[in-house]
């Protein structure tokens, strides 16, 4: 199977610090890949390189076999790569409905193209996103007034509404209660069943084991291992690095 998104030989330094070193990864359609590693391993930096928020010093990123390095973040988003942020970055003073609507309207002009048919399509995407995330009853609430779990799901609703086929999720389940976590897992499974490709950063290893098809283990900007969750989880050397025991 050919990769939808392929990262090869990526390097990125911040002064004397090598945040990402010779990193390669292939994301395949409908597959959930988890980036796992201790804090400072370079996981979020990799997301920032893919989305154009940071530029790689060297290496290549191919989307459908076409290079995307050097494109601005909004162009990369319009190519079908959506991301969430650790700190959510919701549009706090806007309603839940407007947060999700905004995700369906990428055109930077006074109006959106496509007329009534496109408008109807956008409306349906908004409704679907709100239903799947359980936010249909909170459309008029402002994002800053939501409970923590609701904010997390609003972040997911925005991603669903974009219609993107590649999701980069940065700690999407952190801080969720067990019920919300189960809802999140269901949401992810239904998305991948429809062919959405997911790459997620997650510290909760239970979630990783539950949803990930593959794991890439990183430390200090380098990929140390990649494989099936069962294999990675049983590696005692990786566990020692993850839990800070490097002796």
């Amino acid at each position: 199977m050919s990769a939808l998104l392929s990262l090869s030989g990526l390097n990125r330094r911040f002064g004397g610090l090598a945040a990402v070193s010779d990193f390669s990864l292939a994301l395949e359609s409908g597959i959930v890949t988890a980036l796992v590693g201790p804090n400072g391993a370079g996981k979020t930096t990799i997301f920032n390189l893919v989305t154009g928020n940071l530029r790689a010093d060297s290496g290549q990123i191919l989307l459908h076999d076409k290079p995307i390095i050097g494109l601005s973040p909004h162009r990369i988003a319009r190519l079908g790569i959506a991301r969430s942020f650790q700190d959510l970055r919701l549009f706090g003073h806007m309603s839940v409905l407007d947060n999700v609507r905004a995700a369906t309207e990428p055109t930077s002009w006074f109006w959106q193209a496509g007329g009534a048919a496109a408008r109807q399509q956008r409306r349906e995407r908004v409704e679907t996103a709100l239903e799947r995330t359980g936010l249909s009853g909170l459309t008029q609430a402002r994002a800053i007034d939501l409970a923590y779990a609701e904010r997390k799901f609003l972040s997911m609703a925005r991603i669903i509404a974009t219609g993107a086929r590649i999701w980069l999720l940065d700690e999407p389940a952190s801080g969720l209660d067990p019920r919300s976590r189960a809802q999140f897992v269901d949401l992810l499974r239904s998305a991948t069943a429809e062919g959405v490709t997911v790459c997620l950063i997650e510290h909760n290893l239970d979630i990783v084991t539950e949803v990930a098809d593959r794991i890439a283990f990183l430390d200090q900007g380098r990929k140390l291992a990649e494989g099936e969750p069962a294999d990675i989880m049983q590696d005692k050397a990786l566990a020692a690095i993850y839990f800070g025991d490097r002796t």
Binding site: R89, F91, M94, A102, E105, S108, T162
Partner: peptide
């Protein structure tokens, strides 16, 4: 009240997130 206003307010609240949703922040 239309998409232009929503995009603008999205940028006001968080321009990085708005850009991640495909908004051209400079143009808007």
């Amino acid at each position: 009240r239309g998409s232009f206003g929503r995009s603008l307010m999205a940028i006001r609240d968080n321009d990085t997130a708005a850009e991640a949703l495909g908004k051209n922040v400079m143009v808007l």
